[in-house]
Amino acid sequence: MANAIKVRSKLDGDVALVRLLISHPMETGLRKDTEGQLVPAHFIELLTITYGERTVLSAQWGPAVSRNPYLAFRFKGAKKGEKIRIGWVDNMGESATEEATLE
């Protein structure tokens, strides 16, 4: 599926390590296709990760984040079985969300 977000989590006490892999072309707008035409810029601008009501990470990205972005981070106060929610919006107005249970 396009726009998929893969989530892996690992708890160490109450600290959750979250690793994300997001399917997205992250086009810079500088790349040419095989016909020599510039491929329009297409990249994730905003990323938000929430745990319950709490935002545990938010980010603004430019096209210099690699294609199919990878991100790892850790937050405290996490409980096994609780959910995190990931959402992004890109420069073309496309978006995706994903929910994952902390393991």
Partner: peptide, 12 residues
């Protein structure tokens, strides 16, 4: 509550 420790991949 979030640790200042980020891993990601970028283009250069």
């Amino acid at each position: 509550g979030t640790l200042p420790d980020i891993q990601t991949r970028v283009k250069m």
